[in-house]
């Protein structure tokens, strides 16, 4: 089922749901970027320290 609440004909509600979807995508993107940044930082930092 959809992760969001039931769609309605209410324009305001539809707009709110689009905003929630956007926020979900943004939150997840920010978290994935954080994870990748930390991983790359750890490897790069000690690779260059050793080089």
């Amino acid at each position: 089922m959809s992760v969001l609440v039931n769609a309605t004909n209410d324009t305001n509600e539809a707009q709110r749901q689009r905003q929630v979807k956007r926020n979900i995508r943004r939150t997840a993107a920010a978290l994935w970027l954080t994870v990748i940044a930390i991983f790359v930082y750890i490897l790069a930092k000690y690779y260059w320290l050793n080089a």
Binding site: V35, I38, F39, L43, Y47
Partner: peptide
């Protein structure tokens, strides 16, 4: 989110030390 990539980094470095000539 903050700590798991650090563990991943540590075991990746172990892996490259074992097989890819890093030190």
């Amino acid at each position: 989110v903050a700590s798991m990539p650090v563990l991943a980094g540590a075991v990746t470095m172990t892996l490259t030390d074992r097989h890819f000539g890093t030190n």
